[in-house]
Write a protein that binds this DNA or RNA. Sequence first.
DNA 1: TGAGGTAGGCACCTTCAGGTAACTACTTCC
DNA 2: GGAAGTAGTTACCTGAAGGTGCCTACCTCA
Lengths: 136, 136
Amino acid sequence: MATMTAAQKREQARTAYDAFLRACPTNQLLDRLSDKWVSLVLAALSSGPMRYSDLSRKIAGVSPKMLTQTLRALERDGLVTRTVTPSVPVRVDYELTELGGSLAQLMTAVKTWAETHFDEVHAAREQYDAGNAAAS
Amino acid sequence: MATMTAAQKREQARTAYDAFLRACPTNQLLDRLSDKWVSLVLAALSSGPMRYSDLSRKIAGVSPKMLTQTLRALERDGLVTRTVTPSVPVRVDYELTELGGSLAQLMTAVKTWAETHFDEVHAAREQYDAGNAAAS
DNA sequence: TGAGGTAGGCACCTTCAGGTAACTACTTCC
DNA sequence: GGAAGTAGTTACCTGAAGGTGCCTACCTCA
């Protein structure tokens, strides 16, 4: 029975995890929030509504595919609104909803934490790296 | 000059992005925080110190590799402490530092947001999906 | 008149994060 | 004496996220 220990345990653990953590709606939202581009788009939009091309310029490193994908996800979750103005060249504006705004505030709080404690983290890193190098 | 438009622009954009956003220390910390396992480990440790195997059981879905990797990263950033007790089988305890605790509180705030607004998000999703299906 | 901008969609292709499995050294329990 | 647990490390491999290029359709400006 030695052959099934690892596999079986893994299987059991996975099942337990699915039931215990994966099914938790909070976790699903957390996953969404931890997306790389979501925070950037949220930050960009927190200074007011923007058009698609404005966003792609402001965030710069984002590919059109990812930008569209991220915006669709945020729109689906009711965090941003997508307003199409059927003018001469079709113009599309994206804007934070109230819900999105409240989330953006939270992200700002996290950002503030990062800014406040960055020096501590940085010091810890240097100390860790130095200790690591010396220990060898 | 038509051949360089896309490539050149992309290059420029990438450079601008690197200088403008990637170099921002806050962004680096944000990246760390948005890690999938970091939040889970933080949540697990917020209820008190735990041993390696305790963590691997509690979080379940995590592989030993990812757990070690996550813990090392957190330790390096001064968010958790790693205490080795050279007892009979080497025993290792992980515990949140003060810094880690403050971050865990922030994550809890985000979690609270997610719990509070989950129904709104869920409603938005259903509406979006329904509208999408009907529109076709 | 054709090049460029606006708002993406589609398909391919690469990369790398993360999973899996196997191994270590030491000890204790059966 | 060997199987199992503790705390990992290492090498290998896959799958999915994300990047890139190419396409549309319409309009305007040089």
